[in-house]
Amino acid sequence: MKRLLAGLALNLLALAPTIRAAELKLELGHGVRVYHTAELLQRKDVRRITVPADVAFGRVMHYRAIPLRALLDGIAPDDHLQFVATDGFAAEIPAALILNGHGSVAWLAIEDPAQPWPALASGHGHAGPFYLVWTQPQAAHIGPEQWPYQLAAIRQLAGVAERFPAILPDPSLPAGSEVRRGFAVFQRTCFACHTLNGEGDAKLGPDLNLPHNPTEYLGNELLRAYVRNPQSLHRWPQAKMSGFDRQTLSDVELDALLAYLRHMAGRKATTAGAP
Protein backbone atom coordinates (compact mmCIF):
# COMPACT_ATOMS: atom_id res chain seq x y z
CA MET A 1 0.00 0.00 0.00
CA LYS A 2 2.82 2.38 0.90
CA ARG A 3 4.51 1.61 -2.40
CA LEU A 4 1.27 2.35 -4.28
CA LEU A 5 0.82 5.69 -2.50
CA ALA A 6 4.43 6.59 -3.14
CA GLY A 7 3.95 5.80 -6.83
CA LEU A 8 0.85 8.00 -7.01
CA ALA A 9 2.70 10.84 -5.31
CA LEU A 10 5.52 10.59 -7.84
CA ASN A 11 3.01 10.64 -10.71
CA LEU A 12 1.38 13.78 -9.31
CA LEU A 13 4.77 15.45 -8.97
CA ALA A 14 5.55 14.55 -12.56
CA LEU A 15 2.29 16.12 -13.69
CA ALA A 16 2.71 19.30 -11.62
CA PRO A 17 5.10 21.09 -14.05
CA THR A 18 2.70 20.35 -16.91
CA ILE A 19 -0.23 21.80 -14.98
CA ARG A 20 1.73 24.90 -14.01
CA ALA A 21 2.87 25.32 -17.62
CA ALA A 22 -0.71 25.60 -18.91
CA GLU A 23 -0.85 29.22 -19.96
CA LEU A 24 -2.72 31.41 -22.39
CA LYS A 25 -0.99 34.40 -23.98
CA LEU A 26 -2.98 37.48 -24.94
CA GLU A 27 -1.30 39.96 -27.29
CA LEU A 28 -3.83 42.74 -27.71
CA GLY A 29 -1.68 45.67 -28.77
CA HIS A 30 -0.51 46.73 -25.32
CA GLY A 31 2.07 44.12 -24.39
CA VAL A 32 1.72 40.44 -23.60
CA ARG A 33 -0.55 39.24 -20.81
CA VAL A 34 -0.15 35.63 -19.66
CA TYR A 35 -2.94 33.82 -17.84
CA HIS A 36 -2.44 30.52 -16.05
CA THR A 37 -5.05 27.85 -15.44
CA ALA A 38 -5.26 28.36 -11.67
CA GLU A 39 -5.57 32.13 -12.03
CA LEU A 40 -8.42 31.84 -14.53
CA LEU A 41 -10.32 29.23 -12.50
CA GLN A 42 -10.26 31.56 -9.48
CA ARG A 43 -11.82 34.53 -11.28
CA LYS A 44 -15.18 35.75 -10.06
CA ASP A 45 -16.67 35.65 -13.56
CA VAL A 46 -16.11 31.91 -14.02
CA ARG A 47 -19.39 30.17 -14.83
CA ARG A 48 -20.52 26.60 -15.34
CA ILE A 49 -21.95 26.39 -18.82
CA THR A 50 -23.54 23.69 -20.94
CA VAL A 51 -22.82 23.36 -24.65
CA PRO A 52 -25.53 21.14 -26.20
CA ALA A 53 -23.73 20.31 -29.46
CA ASP A 54 -20.02 20.72 -28.84
CA VAL A 55 -18.02 20.81 -32.09
CA ALA A 56 -14.89 19.04 -30.83
CA PHE A 57 -16.63 16.30 -28.85
CA GLY A 58 -19.81 15.92 -30.87
CA ARG A 59 -22.07 15.76 -27.83
CA VAL A 60 -23.28 17.71 -24.80
CA MET A 61 -20.37 19.10 -22.78
CA HIS A 62 -20.17 20.99 -19.50
CA TYR A 63 -17.39 23.50 -18.83
CA ARG A 64 -16.08 26.00 -16.36
CA ALA A 65 -15.70 29.06 -18.55
CA ILE A 66 -15.26 32.82 -18.67
CA PRO A 67 -17.09 35.14 -21.10
CA LEU A 68 -14.28 35.77 -23.58
CA ARG A 69 -15.07 39.45 -23.99
CA ALA A 70 -14.15 39.92 -20.29
CA LEU A 71 -10.51 39.18 -21.19
CA LEU A 72 -10.34 41.43 -24.25
CA ASP A 73 -9.49 44.76 -22.66
CA GLY A 74 -9.25 47.58 -25.18
CA ILE A 75 -10.56 45.56 -28.13
CA ALA A 76 -12.98 47.35 -30.47
CA PRO A 77 -15.52 45.82 -32.90
CA ASP A 78 -13.37 46.82 -35.90
CA ASP A 79 -10.36 44.88 -34.60
CA HIS A 80 -9.29 41.49 -35.88
CA LEU A 81 -8.30 38.56 -33.66
CA GLN A 82 -6.30 35.42 -34.31
CA PHE A 83 -6.65 32.32 -32.13
CA VAL A 84 -3.57 30.09 -32.26
CA ALA A 85 -3.61 26.45 -31.14
CA THR A 86 -0.66 24.27 -30.25
CA ASP A 87 -1.42 21.89 -33.15
CA GLY A 88 -0.91 24.60 -35.81
CA PHE A 89 -4.55 25.65 -36.15
CA ALA A 90 -4.97 29.44 -36.49
CA ALA A 91 -8.53 30.77 -36.53
CA GLU A 92 -9.14 34.30 -37.80
CA ILE A 93 -12.20 35.82 -36.09
CA PRO A 94 -13.47 39.42 -36.27
CA ALA A 95 -13.66 41.00 -32.82
CA ALA A 96 -17.20 42.17 -33.58
CA LEU A 97 -18.37 38.57 -33.56
CA ILE A 98 -17.19 38.18 -29.96
CA LEU A 99 -18.15 41.61 -28.68
CA ASN A 100 -21.63 41.44 -30.22
CA GLY A 101 -22.54 37.98 -31.43
CA HIS A 102 -26.24 38.86 -31.85
CA GLY A 103 -27.16 36.15 -29.37
CA SER A 104 -24.09 33.94 -29.78
CA VAL A 105 -21.77 34.13 -26.77
CA ALA A 106 -18.06 33.23 -26.91
CA TRP A 107 -16.59 31.54 -23.84
CA LEU A 108 -13.08 30.57 -22.86
CA ALA A 109 -13.48 27.06 -21.47
CA ILE A 110 -10.78 26.21 -18.94
CA GLU A 111 -9.76 22.64 -18.22
CA ASP A 112 -9.49 21.93 -14.50
CA PRO A 113 -6.49 19.63 -13.91
CA ALA A 114 -8.50 17.94 -11.15
CA GLN A 115 -11.32 17.17 -13.62
CA PRO A 116 -9.70 16.74 -17.05
CA TRP A 117 -11.79 16.65 -20.19
CA PRO A 118 -12.10 13.35 -22.09
CA ALA A 119 -9.84 12.62 -25.04
CA LEU A 120 -11.05 13.64 -28.46
CA ALA A 121 -12.31 10.96 -30.82
CA SER A 122 -10.35 9.41 -33.69
CA GLY A 123 -6.93 9.98 -32.16
CA HIS A 124 -7.18 13.78 -32.36
CA GLY A 125 -5.51 14.18 -28.97
CA HIS A 126 -6.78 16.42 -26.21
CA ALA A 127 -8.80 19.64 -26.36
CA GLY A 128 -7.28 21.31 -23.30
CA PRO A 129 -6.13 23.30 -21.58
CA PHE A 130 -8.15 26.13 -23.19
CA TYR A 131 -10.95 25.99 -25.76
CA LEU A 132 -13.10 28.67 -27.39
CA VAL A 133 -16.72 27.45 -27.20
CA TRP A 134 -20.03 29.11 -28.04
CA THR A 135 -23.51 29.11 -26.65
CA GLN A 136 -26.31 29.75 -29.15
CA PRO A 137 -23.79 29.55 -32.05
CA GLN A 138 -26.56 29.41 -34.64
CA ALA A 139 -27.58 33.01 -33.88
CA ALA A 140 -24.42 34.37 -35.54
CA HIS A 141 -23.82 31.41 -37.87
CA ILE A 142 -20.69 30.34 -36.01
CA GLY A 143 -18.85 27.68 -38.02
CA PRO A 144 -16.80 24.73 -36.73
CA GLU A 145 -13.52 26.47 -37.61
CA GLN A 146 -14.43 29.15 -35.06
CA TRP A 147 -14.16 26.68 -32.15
CA PRO A 148 -10.37 26.45 -31.70
CA TYR A 149 -9.23 24.03 -28.99
CA GLN A 150 -5.73 23.43 -27.60
CA LEU A 151 -5.70 27.22 -27.50
CA ALA A 152 -2.33 28.81 -26.70
CA ALA A 153 -2.60 32.47 -27.76
CA ILE A 154 -5.03 35.20 -28.77
CA ARG A 155 -3.58 38.03 -30.84
CA GLN A 156 -4.86 41.32 -32.16
CA LEU A 157 -3.58 41.62 -35.73
CA ALA A 158 -4.25 43.47 -38.93
CA GLY A 159 -6.89 41.88 -41.13
CA VAL A 160 -6.17 38.93 -43.38
CA ALA A 161 -6.18 40.98 -46.60
CA GLU A 162 -3.55 43.37 -45.23
CA ARG A 163 -1.28 40.65 -43.87
CA PHE A 164 -1.54 38.19 -46.75
CA PRO A 165 -2.02 39.99 -50.09
CA ALA A 166 -1.11 36.89 -52.14
CA ILE A 167 -4.39 35.20 -51.18
CA LEU A 168 -6.52 38.05 -52.57
CA PRO A 169 -8.53 37.52 -55.76
CA ASP A 170 -8.12 39.82 -58.73
CA PRO A 171 -8.98 43.35 -57.49
CA SER A 172 -10.83 44.07 -60.73
CA LEU A 173 -13.58 41.57 -59.84
CA PRO A 174 -16.86 43.18 -58.79
CA ALA A 175 -17.64 43.22 -55.08
CA GLY A 176 -20.54 40.79 -55.32
CA SER A 177 -18.86 38.26 -57.61
CA GLU A 178 -18.95 34.55 -56.79
CA VAL A 179 -15.16 34.50 -56.46
CA ARG A 180 -15.18 37.26 -53.85
CA ARG A 181 -17.94 35.48 -51.95
CA GLY A 182 -15.81 32.35 -52.15
CA PHE A 183 -12.85 34.24 -50.73
CA ALA A 184 -14.95 35.07 -47.66
CA VAL A 185 -15.92 31.40 -47.33
CA PHE A 186 -12.27 30.38 -47.68
CA GLN A 187 -11.26 32.64 -44.81
CA ARG A 188 -13.97 31.19 -42.60
CA THR A 189 -13.61 27.51 -43.42
CA CYS A 190 -10.13 26.78 -44.83
CA PHE A 191 -7.63 29.39 -43.72
CA ALA A 192 -7.53 28.16 -40.12
CA CYS A 193 -5.74 25.00 -41.28
CA HIS A 194 -4.24 25.80 -44.69
CA THR A 195 -1.99 28.37 -46.30
CA LEU A 196 -2.44 29.61 -49.87
CA ASN A 197 0.34 30.87 -52.13
CA GLY A 198 2.65 30.26 -49.17
CA GLU A 199 0.85 32.83 -47.04
CA GLY A 200 -0.96 32.32 -43.75
CA ASP A 201 -0.14 31.39 -40.19
CA ALA A 202 -1.80 27.97 -40.04
CA LYS A 203 0.46 24.93 -40.03
CA LEU A 204 -2.03 22.08 -39.88
CA GLY A 205 -2.75 21.34 -43.55
CA PRO A 206 -1.00 21.71 -46.92
CA ASP A 207 -0.92 24.81 -49.06
CA LEU A 208 -3.97 25.01 -51.33
CA ASN A 209 -2.27 26.57 -54.36
CA LEU A 210 1.40 25.54 -54.31
CA PRO A 211 2.60 23.58 -56.06
CA HIS A 212 -0.90 22.57 -57.20
CA ASN A 213 -4.40 23.78 -56.47
CA PRO A 214 -6.88 20.96 -55.65
CA THR A 215 -9.07 22.06 -58.57
CA GLU A 216 -6.16 21.07 -60.85
CA TYR A 217 -6.08 17.42 -59.82
CA LEU A 218 -9.63 16.68 -58.60
CA GLY A 219 -12.76 16.88 -60.69
CA ASN A 220 -15.57 19.10 -59.50
CA GLU A 221 -17.80 16.33 -58.14
CA LEU A 222 -14.95 14.48 -56.42
CA LEU A 223 -13.71 17.71 -54.85
CA ARG A 224 -17.20 18.57 -53.63
CA ALA A 225 -17.50 15.09 -52.11
CA TYR A 226 -14.10 15.48 -50.46
CA VAL A 227 -15.07 18.75 -48.80
CA ARG A 228 -18.27 17.13 -47.53
CA ASN A 229 -16.47 14.00 -46.32
CA PRO A 230 -12.66 13.77 -46.59
CA GLN A 231 -12.79 10.03 -45.89
CA SER A 232 -14.64 9.57 -49.20
CA LEU A 233 -11.32 10.13 -51.00
CA HIS A 234 -8.73 8.79 -48.54
CA ARG A 235 -9.79 6.47 -45.74
CA TRP A 236 -7.32 7.57 -43.09
CA PRO A 237 -8.24 7.16 -39.39
CA GLN A 238 -5.63 9.73 -38.31
CA ALA A 239 -6.88 12.41 -40.69
CA LYS A 240 -7.61 15.70 -38.93
CA MET A 241 -9.81 17.35 -41.53
CA SER A 242 -13.48 17.07 -40.76
CA GLY A 243 -16.15 17.38 -43.42
CA PHE A 244 -18.47 20.33 -43.88
CA ASP A 245 -22.14 19.39 -43.93
CA ARG A 246 -24.78 21.54 -45.61
CA GLN A 247 -25.76 23.20 -42.36
CA THR A 248 -22.19 24.42 -41.91
CA LEU A 249 -21.44 25.06 -45.58
CA SER A 250 -24.36 25.39 -47.97
CA ASP A 251 -24.17 24.22 -51.58
CA VAL A 252 -24.14 27.86 -52.69
CA GLU A 253 -21.21 28.61 -50.38
CA LEU A 254 -19.36 25.50 -51.57
CA ASP A 255 -19.84 26.56 -55.19
CA ALA A 256 -18.40 29.98 -54.32
CA LEU A 257 -15.44 28.41 -52.49
CA LEU A 258 -14.59 26.24 -55.49
CA ALA A 259 -14.92 29.26 -57.77
CA TYR A 260 -12.37 31.09 -55.61
CA LEU A 261 -9.96 28.13 -55.67
CA ARG A 262 -10.24 27.79 -59.46
CA HIS A 263 -9.61 31.52 -59.77
CA MET A 264 -6.52 31.33 -57.54
CA ALA A 265 -5.11 28.44 -59.59
CA GLY A 266 -4.41 31.15 -62.15
CA ARG A 267 -2.85 33.45 -59.57
CA LYS A 268 -0.01 31.36 -58.17
CA ALA A 269 2.70 33.18 -56.24
CA THR A 270 5.66 34.01 -58.48
CA THR A 271 7.95 35.78 -55.99
CA ALA A 272 11.47 34.51 -55.52
CA GLY A 273 10.65 33.23 -52.06
CA ALA A 274 7.68 31.16 -53.19
CA PRO A 275 8.03 27.36 -53.06
Rank of each mutant, 00 (worst) to 15 (best):
R163T: 02
L157M: 14
L168W: 05
A121T: 12
L261G: 04
L196K: 06
R224F: 05
A225E: 05
F186S: 07
R20Y: 13
V252P: 00
H80A: 12
Q42H: 11
W147H: 13
Y260R: 10
L257N: 01
L41T: 10
H62N: 14
W107F: 07
D255G: 09
I110R: 00
I93E: 01
L12C: 12
V60E: 15
H102Q: 14
R180D: 05
D245Q: 07
A256E: 06
P113I: 03
D78R: 14
L208A: 06
A22R: 14
H141I: 07
L41E: 05
V179A: 03
P118M: 09
D45V: 04
V185N: 01
N100H: 12
L5C: 12
L218G: 00
E162F: 07
H36G: 15
D170T: 11
P118L: 07
L28P: 00
P144H: 09
M264S: 07
Q136R: 15
K2Y: 13
F191I: 09
N197I: 10
Y63F: 15
V34I: 15
L24C: 02
G198T: 03
V60K: 15
V185R: 05
V179C: 02
V51D: 05
I142T: 00
R188A: 13
Q150D: 00
L99H: 02
R262E: 13
A166D: 09
F57Q: 02
L249F: 08
A256G: 02
V105W: 00
E145H: 04
H62T: 15
F83Y: 12
G143R: 12
P174L: 04
A127W: 05
P144N: 06
I154P: 07
W236L: 14
A65F: 01
R235Y: 12
R64G: 00
D79N: 08
I75V: 15
A65Q: 04
Q187V: 11
L81R: 03
A109S: 09
A76S: 14
E162D: 14
S242Y: 04
G123N: 10
D54F: 01
P116N: 08
H212R: 15
A166I: 01
W236F: 13
Q136T: 10
E216Y: 09
R246S: 14
I167Q: 11
K203Y: 02
R188M: 06
A121G: 13
L4F: 12
L41S: 12
Y63T: 06
L26H: 00
G205I: 03
G125P: 12
